[in-house]
Design a protein around this nucleic acid. Structure first.
Length: 498
RNA sequence: GGCCCCUUCGCCAAGUGGUAAGGCAGCGGAUUGCAAAUCCGCUAUCCCCGGUUCGAAUCCGGGAGGGGCCUCCA
């Protein structure tokens, strides 16, 4: 089954076929770095990081660019409030953003260009647009002339006349049409400015993305992504100016991710955004929940659907993910190997069906196919996550029924088991999760604690042997009060925090 | 006013014409000295009304409720 992608431009799912066979260029709009990142900023990166992982898995060579907008009205305002420079503020907030991405295991970004590094490219585009009559200079500003662009509005299915009807666009004497947008803004005192043929000024909001995308990835991209809220006006304008400039399609596929929603105490649901004032900073969030849980939350819904955020939901999710980590410990007990250090081949075609005839392997292969067919269908990570849980259950069931933990498995059982675990690893790598053990439950790092725990466990087991359950239960109860849970397993007693 | 989307078990969430994945919670069972962990089983006909079809959660029309964009926003 071919990989299919929903294209905002055509409003339907299409077979994915990049311009150059085997290679994919992807551009995703990044943040304006004037405030610390909130979770909403992470939705796109996590999703497109997973998209990139899957495209690579499917055999494509992917180049992924995410821009940093480091000059704009909000930055200028905020810098003034903080009594700092735009540059300094941007650097600080960029560092915060990059750090958040790293924590959420977004590792696939090839390049992160800054808008201010591409002023020349923007000027070239503006010159070209003016030459072709798509843009005009007016009093130190440069505007894009919407009326000259015949298919303006095609991305968002908008009729320019309708736009004007409801427009609350800033009225400017300088504009020819109300819908025209600024490519270049003449400088005002105290603002950062760059030289240009139209005098000193700074870029408008949309031109930077066109300049950076085309400079780094070429005139036509394979995938352009971003949040649904950027569809209009940002992407519409980006598309208009880019295509007017090059005369070629700007991007083959446009992908838009759903926005995060926030449910308040009264049960009202609304988008999470700075303008609503209900944002949750990533740094604050990660103090409460593991980064893996947050990443998982963003992947457990289809990317085009809105994601409803709440603490309860994260807590619930975190709990269910612990089941996976418990299984990884179980795997280690059985095979003496660390799941976290396993490496599954990240090429789809390298999958080997494993021992033929084994019922368990047949089941694994079925789940593997199911997982991939969901991912093939417009990156349905929500559905794929469901298969991930199914595989976990299948593995635990196999361990139980074959008595693997008690050492009763045949070599054939163990081979099949390894095949299944490696498949789980493969899924994990595609989703970018389960790379590290949960710290709190690892427990054994501290030698003294480990020794004391072993002492208590030995004492309790001795009491159990003597049928002195009052003492045994006393020990367990007191440990429970200390948030330590004991597990009596076939191979001996284990413990964990939590 | 214009454009668009959503409504599936108590909660979250897959499924886009062939008879309802998965998670959390709940209940029952296996296992256990009792627990924990794990496994097994049980719990929905898909907001309402009408239509198309042999057959619809899935398509069409109408209604109700919710959300988004049109202005900075990931």
């Amino acid at each position: 089954m071919p990989l299919r992608v929903y294209n905002t431009l055509t409003r339907q799912k299409e077979d994915f076929q990049p311009l150059v066979p085997g290679k994919v260029t992807m551009y995703v709009c990044g943040p304006t770095v004037y405030k610390p990142s909130h979770i909403g900023h992470m939705v796109g990166p996590v999703i497109f990081d997973t998209v990139k992982r899957y495209l690579q898995y499917a055999g494509f060579d992917v180049t992924w660019v995410v821009n940093i907008t480091d000059v704009d009205d909000k930055l200028i305002r905020r810098a003034a409030e903080l009594n700092t420079t735009v540059k300094e503020l941007a650097e600080k907030m960029t560092a915060d953003y990059v750090d958040c991405l790293k924590k959420l295991n977004v590792v696939g970004i090839t390049k992160m260009p800054r808008a201010t590094e591409h002023i020349d490219g923007m000027i070239d585009i503006m010159k070209g647009l003016i030459e072709k009559g798509y843009a005009y200079a007016a009093g130190g500003d440069v505007y894009f002339d919407v009326s000259r662009d015949e298919d303006y509005g095609k991305l968002c299915n908008r009729d320019p006349e309708q736009l004007e009807a409801g427009a609350r666009i800033e009225v400017s004497e300088k504009k020819r049409n109300p819908g025209d947008f600024a490519l270049w803004k003449g400088t005002k005192p105290g603002e950062p400015a760059w030289e240009s043929p139209w005098g000193p000024g700074r870029p408008g909001w949309h031109i930077e993305c066109s300049a950076m995308a085309m400079k780094l990835l070429g005139k036509t991209l394979d995938i352009h992504g971003g949040g649904l809220d950027l569809q209009f006006p940002h992407h519409e304008n980006e598309l208009a100016q880019s295509e007017s400039f090059t005369g070629r399609p700007f991007s083959k596929y446009w992908m838009h991710n759903g926005l995060l929603r926030f449910r308040d105490k009264d049960g009202n649901v609304s988008k999470m955004a700075g303008s609503v004032g209900n944002v949750v900073n990533v740094v604050d969030l990660l103090a409460k929940f593991r980064a893996e849980t947050v990443r998982f939350l963003l992947l457990s819904t289809h990317y085009r659907s809105p994601i409803e955020y709440s603490d309860d939901r994260l807590a619930e999710l975190q709990k269910s993910l612990e089941g996976f980590h418990r299984f990884f410990e179980r795997y280690q007990r059985i095979t003496n190997k660390s799941f976290y250090e396993l490496e599954a081949p990240m090429k789809r075609k390298e999958f080997e069906p494993g021992t033929p005839g084994s019922e368990f392997v047949v089941e694994v292969v079925k789940l593997w196919e199911s997982f991939l067919s969901r991912m093939d269908d417009d990156f349905n990570t929500g559905g794929a996550v469901g298969v991930l849980y199914e595989l976990l259950t299948a593995l635990n069931r196999f361990v139980d029924t074959r008595g693997l933990e008690a050492g009763k498995g045949t070599p054939d059982d163990l081979r099949g088991f390894e095949r299944g675990v490696l498949t789980l690893k493969e899924f994990s790598q595609i989703l970018g999760v389960f790379e590290k053990p949960i710290e709190a439950s690892a427990g054994g790092d501290d030698k003294l604690t480990a020794g004391l725990m072993q002492l208590l466990i030995d004492l309790r087991n001795q009491a159990r042997k003597e049928k002195n359950f009052a003492v045994a239960d006393q020990i367990r109860k007191r440990l429970t009060e200390l948030n330590v849970t004991l597990e009596d397993r076939p191979g001996g007693t284990g413990w964990r925090v939590g």
